[in-house]
Amino acid sequence: MPLPFLTADRALKADGRADPVPPPYDGPDTWRRPYRPGPWRVGAAAVFLLLASFVLLSALIIALAGSPDGAAVCAAVGLLVIALALRLVRAGVWVSSQGLRQARLLRTTTWPWSAVGAVRTVQQPVRWLGLPRTVQGQALRAEPVRGEPRELLTDRGADFLGRPEGFARAADVLAAWADEYRP
């Protein structure tokens, strides 16, 4: 069963540049993430799914004990935790011929390629695993035509912590998509 949110890293061309051309089985308007979710992101989602299984089991026990209201509340909490885990795995940067999309835990922002001025890798203090602590690292920034630059990815985030080659490959692919589709 194909899982589109786990799209594999894209191949590099012979000259070392990333290939922005979509695979033959997908159309150019398909949103895809040009990198795999990292082990920290997948591990956190697995822990949330484990927690959801315990909450749903407790909902079953509460329902069998004769309290349908409590069981409904527990089931709703379990489904909310499952939705949170799925959203956590789906978070990241997605690209298509239409534009650039940054999916976060609670919000998704989409920019058409005409609004993106440049996509660059910069050295700056970045947040470690999204926590308030900052460390020196690399960030991939989208510099819009108008407005403030936005940080898309960091090498210390949940997808690339301990995988510097994965960050470099993802940055190359995203820059290649920007070069290909930006007017």
Rank of each mutant, 00 (worst) to 15 (best):
V95D: 12
Q102N: 12
I82W: 14
L6S: 10
L51H: 11
L6P: 10
R163A: 09
R127V: 00
T7Q: 12
P2E: 09
R107Y: 04
E180R: 15
L80A: 12
L84C: 04
G27V: 05
D15T: 02
A176M: 12
A168W: 04
R163Y: 04
E180A: 13
P144E: 00
A8Y: 08
L80T: 02
V93C: 04
A175P: 03
G157F: 05
L49C: 07
T121M: 03
L106I: 10
R182L: 08
A63E: 05
A63F: 07
A75M: 11
R101C: 09
P4T: 01
D155C: 15
V93P: 02
Q123E: 15
R107N: 05
L161V: 15
A115F: 01
R90H: 15
A176H: 11
L153N: 14
P183F: 00
A46Y: 02
V135P: 00
P22I: 09
E143V: 03
G66T: 04
L12Y: 01
S97W: 11
L49I: 07
L50T: 04
I62K: 15
S114D: 06
P28H: 08
T30P: 00
D9G: 05
R17P: 02
L50H: 05
S58P: 00
G137I: 07
D172K: 12
A63G: 03
P2H: 14
R163F: 00
A59P: 00
V55G: 05
A139T: 02
R41H: 01
P22W: 06
G16V: 05
G137L: 07
P34N: 09
G78N: 10
T7I: 11
Q123T: 08
